[in-house]
Structures are given as structure tokens and as C-alpha cells.
Design a binder for these strands. Structure first.
Length: 400
DNA sequence: CCCGCTTCGAGGTCCACACATTTCA
DNA sequence: CATGAAATGTGTGGACCTCGAAGCG
């Protein structure tokens, strides 16, 4: 995937929103997720700096890279020399955190050599990323769930986050904290900036350009399009316990604690590449989160209380990973290996497609929107001041 | 199976004008 | 080089229109 924000296509993407399956710059992240109460519940985290397509779960202190689980696993496998790298959990957040709040959960961002020179920091004075990374550098198995709650930025409505804190293991930032006690990979993540190591240097300078948090409204006119089903419909499904029908995974409850292999076999959406597009577009992403890594593959639904938004159900991050080939915890097998390529291709196609369609509607200037909202019209067209009109948004009256 | 008709949805266009950006003195 | 004025470009929402797909007889 590219490094650009899926929304504006201009700024460098920094965060990953699982609900939207989108890579966003910080500015767009704030804009998009301040649009309404539901979008505020979306759980976001930093973007993997290696693959630039998955949410980062851990921050490798040695490499100064934020990595998704797959890349973490690849780069820090038990058999590799880097397995002893100190890693720190990357916290996710919801709501519309201020720069200061972001800096508190991503304090390690300052580890980046150019962090202090960020344009954003200079211009906005927002990101004062103090070096308190150690604060987050806890032991792998220490205070897992507690950290999820305490260190996640919880603003506005965070019920989704709290209740769906069924973050299991390696699926999400909070989840990552659930590192199995005996794990050889003390995964403690940090930040992520898109781009592999090769591109890191060239991109670091504009790393914080994304912190342009101007006030922009956003219209989610394409909400249904984004999520494949209407919000009301999906909510209804959730509230009625219709998750089975929504995901076509009736057996999943029984799958809890079962092997990943079983999971895959019960996940139609991942069965082949051809289904990937439809799987995503029809919102059949499983709301599954996994606990632990290799040995422990606990599986559960996140927050089936019916109180969380549909987006929250997707927030565990497992879904996107499942779509992207065999997850780290999935022992390689001929079938999965064969499918992963096609799956990746399918996801790539989907994201490209989504990129061109999804965020077409974008409000760049709230002031202009405000004016347009109150401007008088004739058959939908703006009319000159003082002329007759047939529609006044303010009074719903007509001048003739 | 093909044709013609209807229905539906997506996307494009139009409008005025405040404001952002660029150009120039 | 800095400043201010003028010129130019941009973006905003609702109604309407066009076009293609789908459904039906």
C-alpha cells in the first residue's frame, strides 16, 4: 500500500482505523472521527512502518519501528537474532484526542530522530512529545488489560472501547498487552511511521506534518457504502444478536479457544481471494480477537453487549489480518500459503477501489459549509442575495 | 432468449459568494 | 525583501438531470 492518507491522499498516513480499514494522516483522522458519535468510537492505532497496511501493535525500541503483528512476527521470530529486541505495546485510542493526549500514549514517537523537528510541532505547538517512553515500557505480561484501559486515550464516548476491551492478545494494541506470560517475545511496541526502514529517513521530515488538525467537518454520506451495509441495519443485527448472520459464522462461539486452523475453516470470508472483496464490502469481517501468540490462540468476540457500534466490533484488528493471509499465529500450511497471495491481491484491489470511492466527500472548509448550509436556493441552486428563493434552510420558507 | 419498458441508484452539474491563494505594484 | 491590494481560484449543499443496471412482462 502507499504511504499516503486514504482520505486526503496528500499527507502521509500515520494511523490505522480498523473500523474504516483506512490509513489516515492525523489530521484526517481527527476530522473523520469527529464527524459523529459513532465514528468517535472507532479504535485507531499507529500504522505498521514495515508493511504500511496494518495496524501497528508493537514498537521495537531497537529498530525504532512500529510493527503490526505479522511484521513483528516476521522480524522478531523466535528463531531470529532480533527476537530479543525490546518491544513496547502501542496503545490504541478512540474519540478525538488532542495532540497532547496523543503524545501521552505515543510518547515513544519522540524516539524518532526527527521528531523534535516536526513541522507540526513547530507550527501547532501541539505535540510536545516528552520522553517518557519508559512509562509504557512494561513487562510483557504486566497489567495487560489494565493498561488497555488506563493508557488508551478515552475521549467522548469510549464505551465501545471499554466494553469491547476483549482485546485478545495480539490482535490490537491493547490486546497485545495480553502477551502470554511465557512468551519468548516480550512484545512491547511503540510507534509507527509508514515506510520501511529504507524510506524512513526520507520520510521522517514530514512525519508530523499530519498533525494539521484544522477544524473540518466531514459528511459521512457514504457511510453505507463504506461499511457495506446500512448502519441501522448492522446495528440492528448486532443488537439482536444477529452477528452470526452478519458474519456467517454461526460456529464461532464454539470456536473459542479452538485452533486457528479451525477458525480459518469456519471463516468463509477468508476462504479464497475472490471472496475477499465481497467479504469486506459486505461487512463480513469477523469480530474476532485472538489472545496470545503461537501456543495460545484463544478466540472470542469482542463486546457482544450490543452497546458498541458496528465499528467497534471490527476494531479488534483480527479481521484485516485475517484477510491478509495467514496471521502470525497461524502455522504455515500449503493451503494458507497458497491463498495468502491471492488474498493480498484481493485486499489490495479492494483498498484501491475503496480509496477512490470511499472518501470522495470531504469538507475542507467548515466555514464554507456553514454558509452553504444556510444559503437560500432555487431548485437546489444558490441564488443571489435578495433574490427570490424557494428554499431557505433556516426558515424552510420561500420568498414567493 | 431477446426486446421494450419501467424503476432505481449513482454520479455529474449548476448556482452564489466568502474565503484562500496567487499575482503584481 | 516586505507589504498591501487586486485578481483569480476554490469549495460548499440541494435539486435536478443523465445514464446504466436491474427487473418485469
Amino acid at each position: 500500500m502507499g504511504y499516503l492518507c486514504d482520505f486526503c491522499g496528500e499527507q502521509r498516513s500515520m494511523v490505522y482505523c480498523r473500523s474504516d480499514a483506512a490509513c489516515l494522516c492525523l489530521s484526517c483522522d481527527r476530522n473523520v472521527h469527529s464527524a459523529n458519535a459513532l465514528s468517535k468510537r472507532h479504535s485507531r492505532t499507529l500504522l505498521c512502518e514495515r508493511c504500511n497496511s496494518q495496524p501497528a501493535l508493537v514498537r521495537c525500541a531497537e529498530e525504532k519501528l512500529s510493527l503490526c503483528q505479522n511484521c513483528d512476527w516476521t522480524g522478531h521470530g523466535a528463531s531470529t537474532s532480533t527476537s530479543s529486541h525490546k518491544r513496547q505495546t502501542i496503545n490504541c485510542y478512540s474519540g478525538c484526542p488532542s495532540a497532547a493526549e496523543l503524545s501521552s500514549i505515543w510518547s515513544f514517537v519522540l524516539d524518532s530522530p526527527s521528531a523534535g523537528e516536526s513541522t507540526c510541532e513547530q507550527e501547532m505547538g501541539l505535540m510536545s512529545l516528552t520522553e517518557n517512553g519508559e512509562k509504557n515500557a512494561r513487562g510483557p505480561s504486566e497489567n495487560n488489560m489494565r493498561q488497555n484501559v488506563s493508557s488508551s486515550v478515552e475521549l467522548n464516548d469510549v464505551r465501545g472501547m471499554d466494553k469491547s476491551n476483549v482485546w485478545f492478545g495480539s490482535s490490537l494494541a491493547p490486546a497485545v498487552n495480553d502477551q502470554p506470560a511465557g512468551s519468548s517475545n516480550a512484545s512491547l511496541p511503540k510507534l509507527c511511521c509508514p515506510g520501511t526502514k529504507d524510506t524512513e529517513l526520507s520520510e521522517e521530515n514530514d512525519l508530523y506534518d499530519d498533525f494539521n488538525m484544522d477544524e473540518v467537518d466531514l459528511n459521512f454520506e457514504n457511510y453505507e457504502e463504506l461499511f457495506g451495509v446500512s448502519l441501522s441495519h448492522s446495528e440492528e443485527l448486532f443488537e439482536n444478536g444477529g452477528i452470526d448472520s452478519l458474519f456467517g459464522m454461526k460456529d464461532m462461539s464454539a470456536a473459542e479457544g479452538s485452533s486457528v486452523g479451525h477458525f480459518n475453516s469456519t471463516q468463509p470470508a477468508c476462504s479464497n481471494a475472490a471472496s475477499a472483496d465481497s467479504a469486506v464490502s459486505t461487512k463480513t469481517e469477523p469480530i474476532l480477537c485472538f489472545t496470545g501468540r503461537q501456543g495460545q490462540s484463544n478466540l472470542s468476540f469482542s463486546g457482544l453487549t450490543g452497546e458498541s457500534s458496528p465499528g467497534d466490533y471490527q476494531d479488534c484488528g483480527a479481521s484485516s489480518m485475517l484477510l491478509l493471509g495467514e496471521p502470525p499465529w497461524c502455522p504455515p500450511c500449503p493451503e494458507s500459503s497458497f491463498q495468502s497471495g491471492n488474498r493480498n491481491d484481493a485486499v489490495m484491489r479492494y483498498k484501491e477501489k475503496k480509496k477512490t470511492r470511499k472518501f470522495e466527500k470531504r469538507v475542507r472548509y467548515a466555514s464554507r459549509k456553514a454558509r452553504a448550509d444556510v444559503r437560500k436556493r432555487v431548485k437546489g441552486r444558490f441564488v443571489k442575495a435578495g433574490e427570490n428563493y424557494d428554499y431557505d434552510p433556516l426558515s424552510q420558507t420561500r420568498s414567493y
